[in-house]
């Protein structure tokens, strides 16, 4: 104890600071895995293209089978059954009013695409 040399104290101090820093970085890395995964899953789970395809298909039905209601009903029924079996989603298309309803247990979407009885014109396409 004859000689107290305090020249090297900063080395120990730096050691402390760096270790605390690494500890917090490790916490962040640990969290980021979970956050990244849940976000990616939420994005993947959202049936964006399913709904877009459905809206597009409704326009096709409207323009192609507007004069043959029986054909129209058959196509609509096919779409409803296929989406139920393939995508596990309840789809309901109401002709005339052209209301589209989509529900897969998580995402619930309802829209009046083109109301033939309403004079207001819809500029969707």
């Amino acid at each position: 104890m004859a000689w107290l040399n305090d020249e090297g104290q900063w080395i120990i101090l730096m050691g402390f600071i760096i270790s605390v820093g690494i500890f917090f970085l490790a916490l962040l890395v640990n969290q980021s895995i979970l956050v990244g995964q849940t976000t990616a899953e939420a994005v993947l789970d959202f049936p964006k293209s399913d709904i877009q395809d459905l809206r597009n298909e409704v326009w096709v039905i409207y323009s192609r089978y507007n004069n043959t209601p029986s054909e129209q009903d058959k196509v609509i029924r096919d779409i409803e059954v296929i989406s139920l079996i393939k995508k596990n989603a309840v789809v309901n298309i109401t002709p005339g009013m052209w209301r589209v309803h989509y529900f897969n247990g998580i995402t619930n979407y309802t829209e009046v695409i083109y109301d033939a009885n309403n004079t207001f014109f819809y500029f969707y396409y």
Partner: peptide, 12 residues
């Protein structure tokens, strides 16, 4: 993922 759709009264 079980659900009941109210407008169409569909139970999946």
């Amino acid at each position: 993922r079980w659900f009941f759709d109210d407008p169409t009264k569909t139970l999946v």
